[in-house]
Design a protein around this nucleic acid. Structure first.
Lengths: 147, 147
DNA sequence: AAAAAAGTTAGGGTTAACCAAATATCTTTT
DNA sequence: AAAAGATATTTGGTTAACCCTAACTTTTTT
């Protein structure tokens, strides 16, 4: 079963908040970030859990599973590599690059991402200085296995 | 009213067949190209016509309207500029670049396209030698006003 | 003018995202 | 510890984008 675009957005957002920023994930908090009602977030949690991307204990929050973690990192990797390309090659501002990347990252293949990665010598930080994860399939990449 | 992704695909395909290749557009022919039933194509024609993107005479075929033409060219422009970027900068093969671009073009903004366009000195042909249309909003672009 | 081919309509189906209102479960606060 | 308040979930929808089959209509061919 594969991940829809929205599900990807949830995954990436949860990863950034929970793993990268150490914030606590709440239904209402996410709802506010995504401009939807809490009911919608709950529904998403259920779908994500059904696909084994998060561990979901109703009323007690969520945690990314190993798969969820990996998928979030893949998505963020693609996002941040696109940003890198847009800033370095095309001279977009980091903010504009982020907006473009946000619309395109879900549709960007790992192959394309790997090409960007190789072109820029496997960068470790994106233009906004966030981490770009290694990827097994990318020849020359750091490969820091994940969790 | 805006154009959905599929509608964009129809528009671009119709443009390529009808305008660029001089082929006659038939419901069944499009259905085969897109791997759907003729009924689905008819439905799309009705939607496209409702949005004034094509002129549709039932049983007698379709023609892009001025708006439809413009939109198709915008889409193809983005597609072909993405291809250009992927081939020139990232060394994808033209075929791979086309596949990537096909997934991303709908989500690529005109601003990003303009940046690519400027970076490559407003190219007139994509890697597969098809035309890249001028765009008013792109400073330095040829600006051949369309139809 | 039939038969064949092409196109359309009618009537559905699925899936993804949303929402409001009612309900359930924490968590505070008194 | 009970009530109040905050948070989260369930229930029962809606809408939009695609897609389909089967029946029917129109055009084209023979």
């Amino acid at each position: 079963m594969d991940i829809t675009r929205k599900e990807g957005e949830y995954l990436a957002l949860v990863y950034r908040k929970q793993i990268e920023n150490g914030e606590r994930i709440t239904t209402t908090g996410l709802a506010r970030s995504l401009n939807v009602t809490p009911a919608t977030v709950t529904e998403s949690f259920q779908k994500l859990a059904a696909k084994d991307l998060i561990e979901y204990r109703p009323y007690h929050g969520i945690k990314l599973t190993k798969t969820g973690n990996t998928e979030a990192e893949k998505l963020l990797r693609r996002h941040r590599l696109l940003e890198t390309l847009f800033v370095k090659m095309l001279k977009l501002t980091p903010k504009a690059a982020c907006n473009e990347a946000a619309r395109m990252d879900y549709y960007c293949s790992d192959e394309l991402a790997n090409h960007i990665c190789g072109t820029y010598y496997h960068p470790i930080r994106c233009p906004c200085d966030k981490q770009i994860f290694g990827e097994r399939s990318c020849i020359g990449c750091a490969q820091e296995g994940g969790s």
